[in-house]
Amino acid sequence: MEVTKIINATRVFKIGQMETHALRGVNLTINSGEFTALVGPSGSGKTTLLQLIGLLDQPTTGSVFINGRDVTKFNRNQRADLRRGTIGFIFQFFALIPTLTAYENIEMPLLLNGMGAVERKTRVNEMLAAVGLTDRAHHRPDQLSGGQQQRVAVARALSINPTFVLADEPTANLDTENGRQVMDIMKKLNKETGVTFVFATHDPRVIGYAERVVTLEDGMIVGQA
């Protein structure tokens, strides 16, 4: 079953008189349960494509479908609603709220989804256990290592039982060991929960985890394997 579909999407950024074509007619379908890597050199359009799939941005032309529904023309609030319940995000930088503990960071999307206190507590503890950070629950990000922070981000992304998780260079700021740990956890959760993962990377070790590799160059998909 397809969870997201991009049809003939372009994305043009205008800076003054200059136009930059980040995507040039991309077509892509991601099916449920996939563990897909978007690869390509810097400036190839990986992040822009992830942002379109994640409804953080809108295509200049073309269409975006989520769970079979055309969401291309969704307004800001509709996109926020859809993201809140459907999409998990993992960013290259350790995107945690610095004033919240690991527990509270994971709890935040559940709160936004209006989950009850008891259910929330159970879910957060499950996610902390899944990423092996139960003992670091009440530490703030600045008290955690980079790898631990990224594991909290993984737990936060998965806490809402998303349809799919988008990860933009999830290991770029991690050393080899921590990068491997994060990828192992993502892969394990993909297998155990069946949640779909799409991640952008140009790290060959990370590409090795992918079941499907989509290669971009100059804003176009130039290969799939």
Binding site: G54, L56, R76, N77, A80, D81, R83, R84, G85, F89, F91, F93, A95, L96, I97, P98, M108, P109, L112, N113, R156
Partner: peptide
């Protein structure tokens, strides 16, 4: 700014 982006990405709406 980046934190606002994170909160927005995980679904926090403008009024909140």
């Amino acid at each position: 700014t980046r934190e606002i982006g994170i909160l927005s990405a995980i679904g926090m709406k403008a009024p909140r």
